[in-house]
Design a protein around this nucleic acid. Structure first.
Lengths: 246, 246
DNA sequence: CGAGGGTTTGAAGTGCATCAAATAGTGTGG
DNA sequence: CCACACTATTTGATGCACTTCAAACCCTCG
């Protein structure tokens, strides 16, 4: 049960919260309540934080690392719902779902999370309208991302989905060049994009020949992101600089 | 522009609102404000209510009929996001999205809608916490549906998606029998489930042979819904009596 | 150096899309 | 009530995309 447990380095939780959308514009007292209730924990790769269906007693804010959210079907297949980096929150909306998690969460890199009692959020949201509004905004953003994802799954080809993924990670230089590191395992990226790792590998090769991508290990280079954009974004209803999906 | 316009039969808007989740538990004054601002309109099949990217001045509540929500990609493909029957609301969350619709809406059956000014919602939500909470609940429900849909698209086969769709519409008799009418065109159902109409047709045939479905025109009969359930829900991470998705 | 996981490649199969054409179904005007 | 026009649905033939299974390769780490 008790994994590595509460961390030695008490990195300023207060500051983390201040940067989190959920707490924007809230009164200091309220934020302080959350800070007081926070538990900072360090978890190793592979650790399962909770399983779909578990009672939700906490929600989490990622301080560093990566967390995989997923669901499993009766026949054993796993669907990766999301991959979350630092700064992201998860498990918070179980308070709207009978206090049950609707997905499972697993640490996919050594990760430091801040854990808060769900109950505090549930209570606070009734009392502080601004908190509810912040949450609405967050949920709305998430809904848009999901919509786009649904569209991608039904319309884009595997290479296009990868291209889109890369564009969302990339920060094009003024010259139009892109260099980036894949943020996690290719197997995981494949799963996140709804394809097999073999398909991922072959689709990357197709991107090499179709848009001149250069892939070295987990480093990706593209001399001109507009080529990639034409290739991937033509099959999407969003404009190019679309929000980060991960 | 001006289509059939405001309906003659002033069906009690107030009552419609009272039944809508969004207005549960709100003070009568507020509801009255919405009633006062409501416009009841009747639209013919094919009428486009708004397009993705349009400025959102109104949101809508469906009194009767069916509305199709969709998005179009640069290269012209259309993705059907949702099909909404009476009682459902749409366009309301543009208030969180720079007041722009992130999808298009088209009437797919003669439909009566009640139209409200977005601005009123936007204003009210700041002033009435309960309204924000109602909206949070609604959005959360919608998010779950979207998650399930993403899962379906990446995991389920075409016949399984159809089976799942049918189960969500069906009301099994105690005997386990199911009889139902497809709620709209097969072409539309196919689009909603992310497949071609040809695939839909063939997948229905597969359901006939695999689980003994009987299809006559738009009527579907199944002697034992548990067979269908085993067939479809095995490839889903949700328990059977799952929420209606449409 | 060797073990083991991640990644790539190959060969073969499956599912869905596509294109083309037949069929069923619906509404219209005569 | 029938013939015609038009749409919705089905069927057939073919191709491509992705998966599956198997095996090789590569890289890291002990």
């Amino acid at each position: 049960m008790a994994q590595p447990a509460s961390s030695p380095r008490t990195i300023p939780v207060a500051q983390l919260l201040a940067e989190s959308f959920l707490f924007h514009g809230l009164c200091a007292d309220l934020v302080q309540e959350f800070v007081a209730a926070a538990q900072v924990k360090l978890f190793p790769k592979g650790k399962v934080l909770f399983l779909q269906g578990d009672e939700a007693e906490s929600f989490y804010l990622i301080q560093s690392g990566w967390v995989k959210l997923f669901r499993e079907t009766l026949d054993g297949t796993e669907a990766v719902i999301d991959m979350l980096p630092s700064g992201h929150m998860f498990g918070e909306n179980a308070i709207f779902e009978d206090n049950q998690f609707s997905f499972s969460a697993e640490i996919s890199e050594p990760t430091c999370v801040v854990q808060f009692p769900s109950e505090l959020l549930h209570r606070s949201i009734q009392l502080h309208p601004q908190l509810a509004l912040n949450m609405l905004n967050a949920m709305s953003r998430h809904r848009r991302q999901q919509s786009r994802e649904i569209e991608h799954l039904s319309i884009q080809s595997a290479p296009q989905r990868i291209g889109c993924f890369l564009l969302r990670i990339a920060q094009p230089a003024p010259s139009g060049e892109i260099t980036l590191h894949l943020p996690y395992d290719k197997l995981l990226i494949a799963a996140r994009l709804g394809m097999r790792s073999e398909t991922f590998s072959r689709a990357l090769n197709k991107l090499k020949s179709d848009v001149g991508l250069v892939v070295t290990g987990s480093t990706v280079y593209c001399s001109d992101y507009t080529k990639l954009k034409r290739y991937a974004c033509g099959a999407c209803s969003d404009e190019y600089p679309c929000e980060d999906l991960r």
